[in-house]
Computed example of a mutant assay.
Amino acid sequence: MSIFGNNIFGNKATDSIPGTGTGPAAPQKSDADWRQELTPEEYHVLREAGTERPYTGEYWDTHTAGAYHCRACGAELFTSNEKFDSHCGWPSFWAPLAEGAVRYIHDRTLGMERVEVRCANCDSHLGHVFEGEGYGTPTDQRFCINSVSLKLVPRSDAEEDSGNTES
């Protein structure tokens, strides 16, 4: 079901941004803690809902197989399986890893109607999601995510070949 219909806006999306942490495992950190842990650019994007310039981020044109984690808390959010080339200058995914990995906020800043995407674990800003742009993806959605919000954990060749995780 579309995140743009009443399903999300009526039940899950909000117009305001709550305090840090949204779930039971969410880190409870002060603003000072976040400033100490994150670089100034990471802090601006993740905690102040900023945006990095297009075509400058680490992952906008990456094709490495792996999982994309929240740079602030480490929660796994997206995988390379859902990443696609949208040529917009930011990493694009057609879906998050799992329902509940991200949360949505109705964003009316800059005179636009958008849907902001945040980490469900630590409430960090990731980017925005757009729908109906005509990309040939299974969901017709583009999760436009700031590279600085993510940390790519590449899949190792051994994991891909054997699937064995025993020690």
Rank of each mutant, 00 (worst) to 15 (best):
A26F: 10
P18T: 08
F9L: 14
H125Y: 07
E133G: 03
A13T: 07
N11C: 12
G134S: 02
A72K: 01
R53M: 14
K151Y: 05
W34T: 03
G89Y: 03
L110T: 10
G89R: 01
I145D: 00
E37M: 13
H44N: 07
T109V: 12
G136R: 15
H87Q: 06
E48M: 12
E42Q: 14
G57N: 13
W94K: 01
T14H: 15
A65I: 15
S86F: 01
Q36D: 12
A101Y: 10
H87E: 04
T165I: 11
C73V: 08
V129Y: 04
L46V: 07
T137W: 04
G21F: 08
Y68Q: 04
G163E: 01
L150H: 01
K29L: 06
Y59K: 04
L126C: 01
R35M: 09
T56G: 04
I105H: 05
V129W: 01
W94V: 02
E113I: 14
Y59Q: 05
V129N: 05
G23P: 07
A25Q: 13
V153I: 07
I8W: 06
D157L: 10
D157M: 10
A95L: 08
E82D: 15
T109A: 13
E41A: 11
H128D: 09
G23T: 14
D161H: 06
S92Q: 00
